[in-house]
Design a protein around this nucleic acid. Structure first.
Ligand SMILES: [Mn+2]
Ligand SMILES: [Mn+2]
Ligand SMILES: [Zn+2]
Ligand SMILES: [Zn+2]
Lengths: 149, 149
DNA sequence: CTTGCATTTGAGAATGAGTTTCAATAGCAA
DNA sequence: TTGCTATTGAAACTCATTCTCAAATGCAAG
């Protein structure tokens, strides 16, 4: 956590930007959080904790944190961009239950390797990739089978 | 093309909806088109061809075509939802060059199989999946190396 | 043909996430 | 302190998409 914060400070310093009180608040909020969240989750969370940060600053700081490699955008969920921590964690992909909204994370090294091979074959230099599976989770499928269908 | 149109008509009929002149115009426009397009591409295209269809109807019909399985949403590009034909075509994934915007389509059966296995392992019933790789295409990489670096 | 009724349409208003503007404030180096 | 630049917040703005609602249309029954 301190390490991540320092990384962000370096990122800012390297381009003549300042580590302000507001940026510290937003940064710590993202580092504290687990799982997926969006700009408004953070804004409301900070607000509830009595921190004075504007919505605009939350959006601006999320962009900086993304550029610095501390977090990344996962996917547009319900029309909003959601983020998750990436620094120090291993890459993974997502399954999303369209029924209950649950997110299941997974990772398969064989898929990752095949992806790399495909890029190599096309001379494509990958910067990031994202794989999302939408469907019905085990619990929701069971619930459906039980009731109506 | 006629087969696809009939499929859409059945889809509408099955739920008491009508195959109107406007819906026919939008449907044919999507069937004629190759590759990826968004709502505004279609709207402007129809307009240029002298067809009178409102933006609202284009959006509404795209939704119906999606529900009927004729087209699918590929990804939010530049803040817009883009679509592509799916009926009668084989599934594929996408690479997007962040430099020139080029889209490369690919398919790997081993990846598809691994995805199915992962879903099975989690008891997850997949409805659709989407994999996107963002990066620099061969041409843009070469151009970069040549000039600055 | 009419008539009756549900569906569809278009124009424009509304929504809502994200961005931009700009004047006031704050950080930092000299 | 001073001077210069970066930052902030509030509010205005953007822009894709959805919604509203009155007018138009499709269709089936008579
Ligand atoms: Mn995740
Ligand atoms: Mn495609
Ligand atoms: Zn579920
Ligand atoms: Zn390119």
């Amino acid at each position: 956590m301190v390490e991540a914060r320092d990384r962000f400070r370096s990122h800012l310093a390297r381009r003549g930007l300042r580590y302000t009180a507001q940026r510290r608040l937003v940064t710590d909020a993202t580092l504290r959080r687990e799982g997926h969240y969006d700009a408004d989750d953070l804004y409301e969370g900070l607000r509830a904790a009595g921190s004075e940060v504007s919505r605009a600053t939350v959006y601006r700081t999320l962009g900086l944190l993304r550029d610095s490699g501390l977090i990344k955008e996962v996917l547009q969920c319900r029309g909003r961009a959601s983020y998750e921590a990436v620094y120090g964690l291993e890459h993974h992909d997502h399954m999303l239950c369209v029924e209950c909204g649950k997110v299941i994370e997974f990772r398969d090294d064989r898929i990752e390797e095949l992806q790399r091979r495909i890029c190599r074959r096309h001379g494509f230099r990958a910067l990031e990739h994202r794989m999302g599976i939408r469907g019905i989770c085990k619990q929701c499928a069971a619930a459906q089978k039980e009731s109506g269908d």
